[in-house]
């Protein structure tokens, strides 16, 4: 007799998202105070809306439970080491892991860089401050690409 697969622990995803989100609360200050992160909040809204659209309806990704635990661990290491970028990677990995197929999730994971202060730092380093305005455009382009990849699955 075939055993029933365990139900996906959505409560864990929700709790982990709240926890990782709380650890990243400092992002709001960075977006508000730092001129090179001016478009970060807008890019985050685009990215989060994209994740919600791509992840709905929920797929039952019980197999991604290890990714959720790993995301949590990355956030904790980031908090213990006071390294913001790790906390941002943890949050992005957690939320992007709800998307299928994997290439679409990978694109959205990479697109998370558009809302991070690291984007502002790299932009000022290599391209100049005006490059900051490109965040929403890159976020939208990533969403469209991920949507195209995800379409045949639905």
């Amino acid at each position: 007799m075939k055993s029933q697969p365990s139900p996906t622990p959505w409560w864990f995803l929700a709790a982990a998202a709240i926890f990782c989100g709380a650890l990243n609360a400092g992002l709001v200050l960075a977006w508000a105070r730092d001129p090179s992160n001016r478009y970060g909040s807008f890019a985050f809204l685009i990215w989060a809306a994209g994740i919600a659209l791509l992840a709905w309806p929920p797929h039952g990704p019980a197999a991604r439970l290890p990714v959720w635990v790993a995301s949590l661990a990355i956030c904790v290491i980031g908090q213990a080491g006071s390294l913001q970028v790790l906390k941002q990677v943890g949050l992005a990995l957690l939320l992007a892991s709800t998307i299928r197929p994997l290439p679409a999730a990978a694109i959205m994971l990479a697109a998370a860089s558009t809302w991070t202060p690291a984007w502002g730092w790299l932009a000022t380093h290599f391209a100049g401050p005006s490059f900051d305005g490109s965040r929403p455009a890159f976020g939208l382009a990533a969403f469209v690409a991920a949507r195209l990849l995800a379409s045949p699955q639905k």
């Binding site: 709790a15 926890f19 949590l72 956030c75 904790v76 908090q79």
Partner: peptide, 16 residues
């Protein structure tokens, strides 16, 4: 999973 969450919260609060 609940133990993992509790450990994560405790470590994040106590380590710093």
């Amino acid at each position: 999973l609940a133990a993992v969450l509790i450990a994560a919260v405790a470590l994040s609060l106590l380590w710093p």
